[in-house]
């Protein structure tokens, strides 16, 4: 950067300070507050809150929901990104918009749509009730709401990268005799692996942390349909702040790990694909 485009040192220092202050106060302080509040009454209390049977069951349920929702969206996301980036077909732009649609929808609405389909007075509600199948206020509802909310993550991470990489490597593989699966497995997938992992991580973080959508379909039955974020809410509303913040701290840790891993993956991906991008 030349002198002409450089700001004077005093201004630079002032702006840096301003941003440090802004981000520190506005973004970092809440994170600090979570851990401080969690440990306010000591490690023992915090750990006890996590070891509580209801908390443990919430953790188990959260893991289970993510374990189903994330693979579904990974598979769908890869397929969608593959179609959008590697082929021309009528409706390609429409597909791109539709895949991103769930991001534009409120989490509460993301839960609501499933209640409208499967709730007691939903479209299929009476039928489900007659057959004793529970979707809303049960695991399937939690999974469906989570899938809806985290739907675009993987596709969204992959599409720009795959479009930037173009189609020539795939075409080269085809002229060399590779089948569709071979093209994908040996050429496309290795080229997108870091971005894919990054997308999956983000998808997972959101799946485990989702609150609004699952809160609508959960029914809040302790030890049964409570995920971790819902458990935080219940404890908080019962004024068990130490416990609420302890579980929240665990979720915050997950967020930090995700951010760290994402930064690492971006560096890996950047180095590997630097020449081509």
């Amino acid at each position: 950067m030349s002198a002409a485009t450089e700001d004077p040192p005093w201004l630079r220092r002032l702006l840096i300070l301003a941003v440090v202050g802004l981000l520190g106060l506005f973004l970092l302080l809440p994170l600090v507050a979570v851990f401080t509040e969690a440990l306010r009454r000591g490690w023992a209390v915090a750990l006890a809150a996590l070891a509580d049977p209801d908390a443990l069951s919430a953790i188990r349920l959260t893991l289970l929901v993510a374990a189903i929702a994330v693979p579904v969206n990974t598979l769908g996301g890869i397929a969608a990104a593959w179609c959008i980036a590697k082929y021309d077909f009528p409706g390609r732009r429409l597909l791109t918009v539709l895949v991103e649609l769930p991001f534009a929808v409120s989490p509460v609405i993301s839960g609501l749509v499933w209640v409208l389909l499967f709730g007691a007075q939903g479209l299929f509600g009476p039928w489900l009730q007659r057959h004793g199948i529970g979707i809303i206020f049960a695991l399937p509802g939690l999974v469906l709401a989570t899938i809806f909310v985290t739907f675009p993550f993987v596709a969204r991470t992959l599409v720009p990268l795959m479009q930037a990489q173009g189609r020539e490597e795939e075409e080269a593989a085809a002229t060399l005799g590779a089948s569709g699966w071979q093209v994908f497995r040996r050429v496309t997938l290795p080229n997108i692996r870091w971005a894919l992992l990054s997308g999956v991580l983000l998808c997972n973080a959101r799946a485990m942390g989702e609150f609004g959508a699952v809160s609508v379909v959960s029914g809040h039955v302790r030890g049964e349909t409570n995920t971790m974020p819902l458990h935080v809410e219940i404890l908080y509303n019962e004024y068990q702040f130490a416990g609420a913040f302890a579980v929240a701290a665990l979720l915050a840790l997950l967020a930090l790990v995700t951010l760290g891993a994402k930064a690492l993956l971006e560096r890996l991906g950047g180095r590997r694909m630097g020449g081509a991008l």
Binding site: L27, P30, L31, A33, V34, E37, P107, L202, A205, M208, G209, E210, F211, G212, M228, P229, L230, V232, E233, Y236, A244, F245, A248, L251, A252, L254, A255, L256, T258, L259
Partner: peptide
Amino acid sequence: PFALPTAVAGIA
């Protein structure tokens, strides 16, 4: 704010 679960952000 992207990564932090919204409920956590809310109580914090």
